[in-house]
Design a protein around this nucleic acid. Structure first.
Lengths: 348, 348
DNA sequence: TTGTAGGCGTTATCAT
DNA sequence: ATGATAACGCCTACAA
């Protein structure tokens, strides 16, 4: 008969990660002391002990168990990020800014993708909530104030649990927001295009109710009209490239006069439109001008280069992170956008 | 004097999230029972109790505390993803696949960005390790077998802690990998370009030692030479757009004969090259042909459309996720790539 | 300054 | 099938 107590192994099952306990024992100090030097902060501990503990930790390859820390402290070092589609450059750039900021702050970011599906979004927030994140950055294109009560419920639960929520984009919701001046930027674009001599425009937008889209459409219309232009059509579709091509197909089917300008409310949509225009045998630029919004890198690579409105996405992400960490943060400066006139909208 | 025990509030500090305890009490069952119906699985519990518990949970807005679950179970529901740069479409697409798969599996994805900085990478793995993730997907461009021992140490610690590691890309490391046939794809591209009549090529790659880059360079060289072509120069630089432009500038300074083809080992690099070529007043296509690798969406939008090798990144990400979850997974089918000949490399 | 001990929200073992 | 109860790894009054 083997001695059941002796059999399983040495002291500890040396397969799992070393615990704080292991480190303390190895350093010959108490758990509390080890905790203080390794994780806790303000407390003071003698130099000699500190060094002992640190080297033991190093030697053992100790890494604090964040989950345990979180359950003990009641709060985690996690920032949750909710985006519509991480493969979309808009969100990629944004996520990049968030991730950088998080890294600087010693936080970890958890990411989830809504695919612009409301049900999915609710499910995801619920799941994210399980992490008791320190904060949640909501960057998925919000649909107006029509916020689903169930989503609202999950969101409230998250804040009730001590997490801060920050939205990025249009703002106007129930949470602090990093404001992007979509309306102003679009207005400036409208004015600039009118000044370039355009008089007729077709707008390609997302579904009605998507704030970002609505704001850009309205702003553009104001600006373009104030410059003497006329919006001949507003076609709504998906927020992706495919949405742009089909909307443009529809526009072309209805007839597009030479010299008109097409405003896609995002560069991705505009690029889809460019593709549709080409496929229809028309020329982008002098024949049918195209402008977008966001200033994703691709816009500079296409020919003719895409006129757009620059949105400092990485910076926005970074600011969103700071905002979510700062309890006193309510609203920063609205992010001002800059019009970038390029060859896709030549002077007429 | 206020009664200190009565003062702070009702039963519980009704500000934090309701706990399993709250739910159990509300439903009038034991903690264990509540746990079984809500989270645990196999165990059976009477229908009546089950319903009671579920509705209590619903009513209270209960959401399992993942951290607590993790400390109790010793394993988390987290998948960590390490990429070089989330704003790069390559990684964006990959992350998208991972995120989708994770969602299906009820897992949460934590993301970190190395920026191709070795020090940073070590730090990040250490941080990620704190989460005791169920798995880690390593997609940051690995630098050959020159793996830093400290990184190796962190990685080993992570597996020792029960996490599985899967790399995506070249493979050949110490961990299971989702293999991408960079070499074969590049070889096929070389052959195809030679068949299109090209005889002289300039290769724009990343720094020596970056496996993905090296494999693509070697594969391309083999293929192109086998078709009768000649590699006139190999210029190495950064893995981003800027790396492509400066490498191309260098190539142009040395002189590039009309009819040559430039192979950028990634689309992003190739796009940078295109930009440099244009700026130098040369024409892309008939004059200087350009080919890339990856097949990022932008490649279809530029003019002339970019010849490239399609890498099913989203699928790769999805497979990486499955691989990291499946302990018995060692290596799947190598991902086969497909050459996409477009207008940037016209027939000569 | 250091250690002791109780608690964080869950899970899982073991009786019942 | 259900319910106490001891972990899980860590933090933090409180005591020494």
């Amino acid at each position: 008969m083997t001695d059941i107590t002796a059999d399983p192994g040495r002291d500890r099952p040396r397969s799992a990660s070393p615990t704080l306990h292991d480190v303390a024992r190895h350093a010959g100090v108490s758990l509390a002391t080890a905790s203080r030097v390794l994780n806790g902060s303000t407390r003071k501990v003698a130099e000699s002990y500190g060094d002992r503990v640190r080297s033991s930790a190093e030697l053992l390859g100790y890494s604090a168990n964040l989950s345990a820390q979180a359950t003990a402290k009641g709060t985690s070092a996690i920032i949750a990020l909710l985006v519509a589609d991480i493969a979309d450059p808009y969100f990629g750039l944004l996520a990049s800014g968030v991730a950088h900021g998080a890294d600087e702050a010693g936080l970890v970011v958890t990411i989830a993708i809504t695919e612009r599906d409301a049900e999915r979004e609710i499910r995801l927030v619920r799941a994210l909530r399980g992490q008791r994140p320190r904060g949640l950055i909501l960057a998925a294109s919000r649909r107006a104030e029509t916020t689903d009560p169930r989503l609202k419920h999950e969101l409230d639960a998250l804040t009730a649990g001590g997490g801060r929520i920050v939205t990025v984009g249009p703002g106007g919701g129930d949470f602090p927001a990093v404001l992007i001046d979509n309306r102003g930027g679009a207005r400036a674009l409208g004015v600039a295009l009118a000044a370039r001599g355009y008089r007729s425009a077709i707008v390609l937008g997302a579904l009605e109710g998507v704030r970002t889209s609505d704001d850009r459409i309205e702003g553009f219309s104001e600006g373009f009209r104030s410059g003497g232009g006329d919006i001949s059509r507003v076609i709504r579709g998906g927020f992706d490239r495919e949405g742009g091509t089909s909307a443009m197909d529809e526009a072309l089917a209805g007839g597009v006069a030479p010299g008109a300008v097409v405003f896609g409310i995002s560069d991705v949509i505009a690029l889809g439109a460019v593709s549709a225009i080409r496929k229809a045998g028309r020329e982008v630029g002098a024949d049918i001008a195209v402008a977008g919004f966001d200033d994703i890198p691709t816009g500079k690579d296409v020919t003719p280069a895409l006129t757009t409105v620059h949105v400092p996405l990485t910076q926005v992400g970074h600011e969103a992170l700071r905002a979510v960490l700062d309890d006193s943060w309510v609203s920063g400066e609205t992010i001002i956008l800059e019009v970038l006139l390029r060859e896709s909208t030549p002077q007429r």
